[in-house]
Design a protein around this nucleic acid. Structure first.
Lengths: 368, 368
DNA sequence: CAGAATAAGCTCTGACTCAGAGCAAAAGAA
DNA sequence: TTCTTTTGCTCTGAGTCAGAGCTTATTCTG
């Protein structure tokens, strides 16, 4: 395959339902080359053409580039604290099938077994068409595909056992950021900052469409930047971590209670309907969030901030306080035109959508 | 020009003195294609070949790829708080000529006039060979090439008047980071974090050779992340900025003195030879630096940190305290193998070297 | 000092890609 | 129906480059 072929596949993937004529224009090739390239990709069972919807104007009708019915697929998998899911995703991001179950924080082996079975099922059901696996995991994934998920007490788990072929994996927050930037709320941003609060805070910076994964795949641990109270110890071993100032544990501490086992549900309830005594704690947490976002925006020069998880709840419940702390923390010259803070568009589907994107990116590289 | 031609030029630029055979291997082309490409580039007066030094082994000797004697050049300019400089730089980074003077914080027009004259001089002296200008400026440069340098009280200065042609400009700390990563102490790092303390703190992240400049070219203002004391107001308009905890103003504050006019010289003196009363202030600042670096490393997952400006002085004078605060701030799992903190190799030449690199990058794009 | 070994460059052929021109096709507009 | 517009198809020619086979320049080994 050639550079142009790969580029055309990328266009077809990034713009599902693009017409052949538009794709040629996006690539900057003439109709001759378009014929050549499309026929090659059709021959290789990577693309198919279907009549496009009438444009209404004059001229010969064009066709729409769609995934080939026998073309390659990717599997996207997601493991969270409570559940696992697997999806079959075709070129363009359309989800053909989904499966999954709850696992409730079991040992790795007890999660890996049904997950591997589900993956094998899909591979059989789709007759070998799945060519890559992308996995979203609730922890850090090293370049050698080993997972550390402190919250689940999984240490140095070898993910390679899940899938023998082309396999990419990443942190849930990182992948959600990627998905937001490609198909979500941050699709037009030059530099997007995505933050996701659950038990702790994670996120990622997406620089011109490129997610920054760091030297060891562990970038985006913004929750462990010292924006918080230096007196508070973080489970990570450091003190003053921002994460401890904005999540459910922060709310519990401010309310003089121990951190509940399911701090996310607790925090969601408190933020949504705080009692009079709880409201100041919510406001305080929202301010901590706003101030930290401002610091990150100062540092990375983002033009858009997307929030996921509890960040959305805080943005809804205490928007004014969050924004005023945000503005106060921005360098003065940025305050005239502050980068917007918006809720993530993909919600809980962000991580698995990002896993699918990552798998497709990796697969398209090998098809090029 | 073709992709391969551009790639070969990039190789010749990134590896000055590379042999023709090695360049072909780096590109992954055969000897036939190498002949073709090199002859095309020689014809276009972009490259020349000279006999390479004996390798010692057997085999036909190869040649070395060097800049063509009549080939394109770039001008690299640097404006600091006190001086301006211009250099003529050939492919590969070799500096052919330098000029400059002090300006001592004059108005923009008084700096622009002699700088423009020097640029014109070089253009004449090198008979039009300079094809691009790269400028390092002590402030933020917008995509439209307008400069804001608060310390010099220059606001929204139009840089385009300096050079009519291909012109790129950037922040001094950003450019120093770029230079460190390409030819300095960070040349092997996957993700390098460069920090430079002068009056305030700036820097940049270099991700796999790619400097992150942000959405508006203002990334790297890490000095305005809230790692500092929330009670201290920063000239930027926010509170608790890290910069105010690690520069000369921090030392002065800790010593109960007003910030001196030339805080860099003051800080350098205090750090190098502190009195007994001053030593705790130096230690405190070093700890603040170490803790903040740890937070950034947690967040961006850098595998190397380079320090410039006063950072080097602190690293020399209070290495133990800086490192212990650094380790304490890292997430526990990173402490076994913490990313090294090293002094920048290019010293004060970092910004102008980065300006030259940026100009060459831009020029190589147009030659491709 | 004369091969032998080795590394590298040169030249030729053929495959491949793709831009551009010209023509054909399919629709709406007059 | 005929013209206009947009798009697709085919053909030609330019350009790039991999690979094979040969040549050249050097060091190594008797």
């Amino acid at each position: 395959m050639t550079t142009r072929s790969t580029e055309l596949l990328r266009v077809a993937h990034a713009h599902p339902g693009v017409t052949r004529a538009d794709a040629a224009r996006l690539l900057g090739v003439g109709t001759g080359a378009a014929t050549e390239i499309v026929s090659r990709l059709t021959e290789a069972e990577l693309l198919a053409e279907v009549p496009a919807a009438r444009s209404g104007g004059r001229g010969r009708p064009t066709t729409m580039l769609v995934p080939h019915p026998d073309g390659p697929l990717v599997l996207a998998a997601e493991i969270t604290q409570e559940v696992w899911r697997v999806q079959v995703v075709e070129l363009g991001g359309n989800v053909l099938a989904t499966t999954g179950e709850e696992h409730d924080g079991a040992a790795w082996a007890e999660v890996a077994a049904p997950l591997t079975a589900a993956i094998g099922d899909f591979r059989d059901r789709y007759a070998g068409r799945p060519r890559a696996l992308g996995l979203s995991a609730p922890g850090t994934v090293s370049p050698g595909l080993r997972l550390d998920a402190a919250n689940l007490k999984w240490r140095d788990v070898d993910l390679r056992t899940l899938w023998p072929g082309l396999f990419v994996a990443g942190n849930d927050a990182t992948l959600a950021a990627s998905a937001e930037s490609r198909r979500g709320a941050a699709s037009g941003a030059a530099v997007a900052l995505h933050l996701r609060i659950e038990a702790g805070l994670g996120g990622a910076v997406v620089d011109h469409g490129n997610v920054l994964i760091g030297a060891t795949g562990a970038a985006g641990e913004f929750g462990h930047m010292p924006f918080g109270d230096p007196a508070v110890a973080c489970p990570c071993g450091a003190h003053g971590c921002w994460g401890t100032a904005v999540d459910g544990s922060a709310l519990a501490r401010l309310l003089g209670r121990p951190t509940p086992r399911d701090q996310v549900t607790f925090a969601r309830r408190v933020i949504a309907s705080p009692t009079g005594r709880e409201r100041p704690a919510v406001v305080s947490v929202a301010r901590n969030l706003g101030r930290g976002i401002a610091g990150l925006v100062n540092g990375v020069d983002a033009d858009l901030v997307t929030l996921g998880g509890l960040g959305v709840d805080l943005l809804t419940a205490a928007s004014d306080e969050l924004h005023s702390a945000y503005l106060a923390g921005l360098m003065a010259y940025r305050r005239d035109d502050p980068p917007p803070i918006v809720p993530a568009a993909l919600g809980d589907d962000g991580p698995i959508a990002g896993a699918a994107e990552m798998a497709w990116s990796a697969l398209l590289l090998t098809l090029g």
